[in-house]
Write a protein that binds this DNA or RNA. Structure first.
Length: 138
DNA sequence: GCCAACGTTGGC
DNA sequence: GCCAACGTTGGC
């Protein structure tokens, strides 16, 4: 069971929109980076991840779940990239900001703190628990 | 196959 | 709005 982190600019696709999309979820399309692609390909249905707002907010705001495994991204004219479908599971009780993550010594190795440009990132089980706790979830 | 030029991302 | 970091493109 792996954990992930998905970045999105709220102007483009926000947590609220993800929640509105409901149980059926939405495709996480638009990934055009090969490292992110490999992460998408490794995902299995039921695996959970953090939803992170980049640029505006700069915080983890919610938890999503993979509901459909990797398949071709129809917005990619080259056919090289794919996507998964995600649904919103629950919001954090309070957002966990990038600032707070960087200030937490146990999260020093977190990808978000070191390679902020990668749009789909792996999260370790330990990091998952720490950030969840910081977000007010048991 | 190398690498310079360019475009994009995202924190500040 | 700036700019550093990074990825991609394309000429050679």
């Amino acid at each position: 069971m792996a954990y992930w982190l998905y970045k999105s600019e709220p102007k483009t696709w926000s947590w609220d929109q993800q929640v509105e999309a409901g149980e059926h979820g939405t495709p996480w399309n638009g990934v055009r980076n090969h490292v992110a692609k490999l992460n998408l390909m490794a995902m299995q249905v039921g695996e959970r991840g953090f939803f992170y707002h980049s640029n505006e907010g700069k915080a983890v705001v919610g938890i999503v779940e993979v509901i459909r495994p990797y398949y071709p991204d129809d917005t990619d004219p080259t056919g090289r990239f794919g996507m998964v479908d995600l649904r919103a599971v629950e919001p954090l009780r309070r957002p966990v900001t990038l600032e707070a993550i960087k200030a937490e010594p146990r999260l020093k190795a977190m990808v978000l703190a070191n390679n902020s440009r990668l749009s789909v990132q792996p999260v370790t089980a330990e990091e998952w628990e720490i950030v969840r706790g910081m977000g007010g979830l048991a």
